[in-house]
Design a protein around this nucleic acid. Structure first.
Lengths: 259, 259
DNA sequence: TTTAAACCTTAACGTTACGTCAAGGTCAAG
DNA sequence: CTTGACCTTGACGTAACGTTAAGGTTTAAA
């Protein structure tokens, strides 16, 4: 049995918040002590965990209450949905960090960003409760129209992404080809190429670190298969140029001389 | 020049929000049209981007205004701080997903969780404007490698994912090869390797628990075929290094104690 | 050329999810 | 037996908008 303070410390919530949740009947204590203290038990704790997962996803408390109090509520399915949503959220964050890093480099004067690019990653992950948790019921009731629309959007998106991914790769290779014909390559050009490669990478890697990026391209050199891939497509020495470009790019991310 | 709606569409904000930001002097339009329409220019757009980065980190608008209006405000430094903070946020999310996955496994009846474990990852990332100004090295030390993404398994493994899977495996092996040539391997490096292995694993495993992860790598040692697989590719003793690395990684996950 | 849709404006009230007193009761430790 | 850290129920405050109302402007089509 936990008191409000204890449960608050456990979860990071304030006592006031727990009292508020009681007042709106979102989370009532298991019982009251003789002197009227709220006492929470294991079941409350589990319910609170669910509440916080939903809250983390940005659902209003009223909606959370509706969902949790629904007799057909399926805890496991809800948790799986949470996981998908959080993974989406993580993607958004990665995107945001990527936008931020691009901005950083832009401020240092080597690239320019479109206004649209400046806000990639900010927009909210869509929270559509109806389309999955009660997927079957919704479909039964309203036909599969709404559901299909949602699903189609995901498919369409990834198809588009896939195209973008391939285009980006082609672009990298043609840039490499261009640069190989030149005697001198400026750091700016290298950084731009490194950034392109990073963007290409971000389609397949959800998390990014400069160390890992450098490690990957170093592997390009060590592994003949990868080296051959770039050399074949863009010309001899292409892999080396790319590795060098990525290093310039990651170095710029770490340094902080303005302009 | 953008009107409210246009800027709103660009950023994902509502017109009302932009009008509100104007009313509190957080973001004023560059000028007003003849008929009184708000018109935003490039400078507004850049300022708005900064505002949104701060907002994403959870700072109250009043504080954001104070920071941006401070004459000593350094845009580049601010962006770098955003980056560190967002990476921190990413870490929290990974932790949360891990908690969620543990909960899922618990619900399926194979493990039990302490009440404390049930809330790991919920607590807010500290938003401390003043601390950590001198933390550039910290950033280098804990890159986001450790922050692995959970299961891609939701979707069937696409061609794209399959490539990533193979690249990741190559990368693990080349890291192993590197580490084998060294006398001392830090816990950081081990943990990073363990995290990579987990990410690799997540392509084929639906759910994750540290116990399962440990169990799997222990099997690597017991089963000669697995041991040979890594030893052949990365050198003698590679399997042991990997097992050790995974143990460091899972231990860190349990202790929730970075560094 | 007019007319309807889709913008824009200010003003004002509503809402969510709490924070913050205030005034008082309870409990374990010293 | 007193002190300090808890707890209680109000009740008002607040941040960051959403929403509605009442009306003016722009644009593109009929």
């Amino acid at each position: 049995m936990y008191t409000v303070k204890e449960l608050g410390d456990l979860t990071g919530l304030s006592s006031r918040t727990l009292r508020y949740y009681d007042s709106i009947n979102l989370l009532s204590p298991a019982e009251l002590s003789e002197s009227g203290y709220r006492l929470y038990d294991k079941r409350s704790v589990d319910r609170l965990q669910q509440i916080l997962f939903y809250r983390e996803r940005g659902l209003p408390l009223k909606e959370i209450k509706r969902i949790l109090d629904d007799p057909s509520f399926d805890e496991i399915k809800a948790l799986q949905k949470h996981r998908r949503q959080l993974i989406e959220e993580q993607k958004k964050l990665s995107q945001l960090i990527s936008t931020l890093e691009k901005t950083l480099i832009e401020k240092k004067g080597t690239i320019t960003m479109s206004d649209k690019e400046k806000f990639e990653g900010f927009k909210k992950v869509m929270v559509d409760e109806n389309s999955r948790i009660y997927g079957e019921e919704v479909e039964a009731a309203y036909g599969s129209e709404k559901l299909n629309k949602a699903n189609k959007q995901i498919l369409k998106m990834s198809e588009k992404d896939f195209d973008k991914w391939k285009i980006l790769e082609k672009y990298i290779i043609s840039t490499l080809k261009n640069l190989l014909e030149r005697d001198v390559i400026s750091d700016e050009e290298k950084s731009t190429l490194g950034g392109m490669h990073r963007e290409w990478l971000s389609f397949t890697w959800d998390t990014y670190s400069t160390a890992m990026h450098e490690g990957l391209v170093e592997m390009y050199l060590a592994d003949d298969r990868f080296k051959a891939y770039y050399d074949d497509r863009a010309g001899n020495g292409a892999a080396e140029v790319l590795v060098n470009a990525v290093k310039v790019y990651t170095k710029e991310l770490h340094e902080n001389q303005p302009k």
